[in-house]
Design a binder for these strands. Sequence first.
DNA 1: CCTAATTAAGAGTATTTTATCTTAATTAAA
DNA 2: TTTAATTAAGATAAAATACTCTTAATTAGG
Lengths: 146, 146
Amino acid sequence: MKVLSKSSEYGLRALLYMVGKRGGEQEYVSIREMSEQLDISFHFLTKILQSLTQSNILASYRGPSGGVAFNIPPEKIMLSDVVRVLEGEDFFDTCLLGLPGCGEKKPCPMHQFWKEIKAALKHEFETTTLAQMGQITLDSRLRLMP
Amino acid sequence: MKVLSKSSEYGLRALLYMVGKRGGEQEYVSIREMSEQLDISFHFLTKILQSLTQSNILASYRGPSGGVAFNIPPEKIMLSDVVRVLEGEDFFDTCLLGLPGCGEKKPCPMHQFWKEIKAALKHEFETTTLAQMGQITLDSRLRLMP
DNA sequence: CCTAATTAAGAGTATTTTATCTTAATTAAA
DNA sequence: TTTAATTAAGATAAAATACTCTTAATTAGG
């Protein structure tokens, strides 16, 4: 079950890495460093983070000791903000059977069932911050939602 | 958010179509007919249903008035049975960030969160039958395609 | 100013997924 | 027995996704 594209997987992993590095003084985190530490293609990661920069979640700086930094504190960045940029606006609004006309008016046989799952997923993504997720890395026994 | 491959989407739609046709007399349902009614590539659908035949969910018959039929009553076929065949055994056991080592011992930052969503999905798929899903189609008097 | 280190941008390539095409095997009916 | 209607199986092609490469722009530091 692959829910996120590689772009989102890599993007989220990089953002969580950045959350982990905060507290240190370095404002900008090098994309090269992240690509090496996380074993992600440098050029591919660059492109992914570029789109997060263009949507103002990150800020970037070129030249020596440049890199990317949060443009918004990660306490205020929801997982949904990230996936909406990397996967598209309609991420939480798909039909399980891929039927274009499916919706409340014309539900497919999976609709009610899938709707509930999607709502739970959406709720989690919309109420969980990058900072919270990053925290789990440090304290991996934390449980998030009811 | 694309959870199922096209193979699963098409396979499920065909199976639900077959559930809808039961009660009529025809034992075998023609793949050609389904491909036309559901607007799915005939050859592609044939391959998908072949793998359901090979895993004994369906039975097939060649020659005029041949086709595929349920080998097990759809009241006993769980959605999970179908997706396990069409998506692979590990369908409900993936990491949201795509990390190969992720698990209870070495959870990624998304693990606990994702685990709960997966469990809900798995539970629904494992407790819902094709017949139940098909019933919804009949109840709401809908056709599958827009 | 010059050089090296970095991100930006876009073209190009590879891999995977999805779809099509071709041929073979099976079966019912004329 | 011949023909047409079907599924089976595998090769091929197209499209989408994932990844790589090249060049340009920016910036710090010598």
